[in-house]
Design a protein around this nucleic acid. Structure first.
Lengths: 214, 214
DNA sequence: CGGAAACCGTTGCATCTGCAACGAATTTTC
DNA sequence: GAAAATTCGTTGCAGATGCAACGGTTTCCG
């Protein structure tokens, strides 16, 4: 069941079963199970609802003219995507894709625009808090991307990871290519810099599991 | 008077005078007039209210350990800063400063947490829409910062400016140093690239006024 | 009016990093 | 289980870019 996952999401945290059922009805929740590689929204598709990831990983990206694709967000379990576009009923040529097998809960903003009620008030407040938290996370990313060297971006990124994990060891939710996209650098240049940092004894890693030394 | 400016802001757009008065009371609005260079929030200060810029320009930045300062937001007339932190009642070591003489309207989120009322509903909806629009703007910035070359960042930035201005001529709200910070590049490298683009006949500019050619 | 500060472009240099290509190792698929 | 696809590290290279320094111009302020 999805209860435990929803408990980790900002929208449904702390609800008992009855409240959760009511809330899911409010959002007209619909679950979709999809395989890795499934396109949840193509560049030109509209977005009738926003998504909450129950399982797996989803990326939001945008292709530029040179075929280069830029990562806008990497969405992990319990997090959402597309809320802003959905709330504002705007369109945008973004591409949303499941990069692992995934389960997604689609939620509609319609009820937020409906008649006032205690439930709507509660949900609106949670939705707003979610957006606010989102902007803070995006600021963290902007902060990383503002650095001029790969090394500086990495240390900023690692610091953030360590903070979130509450320790010096953590596993990042990316493969190398994804990590490079998130940091806005070339994949091979990233590998090179990671090797260098390992050689200097600053970090240890295996695959996506890192440990900060010193 | 500030009416005309507030008409341009997402929070107060489309209100008549009576509604505006009510809304300002709701937010416990307080105007502050300040000189260029005034620090509106130091790195360690808490933030009791968020700001709406009535006049002038305000920057939100964060210093990293090397003294390097990173630009998080450049806030122009009619736009706001600090809403997310204020709404979530979180603290963050960001630095907010008036970079021109400015007038700022301080708004409190308290009433959003108060008793339900039609006014609160309306304001909450506007606040949410403002946050949603904000995340979309931040996505634009992330998109720019994700590019790997100065040239690519510039063309993305210019494209966005041209879209906003509705034409090929526009004035950016930055001096060169600010523009470099916004784009996450070195100031002199930016000057160099701009000269190059001018030499190639791709753009014309004088100070902060640009025109796209070709 | 005059000095100080801010702003902007230019240049030389060392280094960084994107890019392309390759091979090893691992995972997926049939 | 074998072939195909994906992932990851390495390397050579050329060009891009950060950095520091300098000078000219404009703006600010007393």
């Amino acid at each position: 069941m999805a209860m435990e996952v929803l408990q980790k999401s900002a929208l449904f945290r702390g609800m008992n079963e009855a409240q959760m059922r009511q809330a899911l009805a409010f959002w007209q929740a619909q679950e979709q199970i999809c395989l890795r590689g499934t396109v949840l929204k193509g560049a030109l598709d509209p977005l009738a609802a926003f998504g909450l990831v129950l399982q797996g990983n989803v990326t939001v990206s945008m292709d530029d003219i040179d075929g280069h694709s830029m990562l806008l967000a990497h969405v992990t379990q319990g997090n959402t995507f597309g809320e802003s576009l959905c709330y504002l009923q705007e369109e945008s040529p973004i591409h949303i894709e499941a990069i692992t097998d995934a389960r997604v809960l689609w939620l509609s903003c319609d009820a937020l625009r409906g008649a006032a009620s205690p439930l709507r008030d509660e949900m609106q407040a949670r939705f707003t808090a979610m957006l606010a938290a989102r902007t803070l996370r995006m600021n963290d990313r902007i902060q990383i991307l503002s650095r001029t060297s790969i090394r500086a971006r990495l240390t900023a990124f690692f610091t953030e990871c360590a903070r979130d994990a509450g320790g010096n060891a953590f596993t990042v939710p990316f493969d190398r290519a994804g990590m490079a996209a998130y940091l806005g650098v070339d994949r091979s240049a990233l590998s090179r810099e990671l090797s260098r940092m390992r050689a200097e004894g600053a970090i240890a890693y295996q695959k996506s599991a890192f440990r900060l030394l010193k």
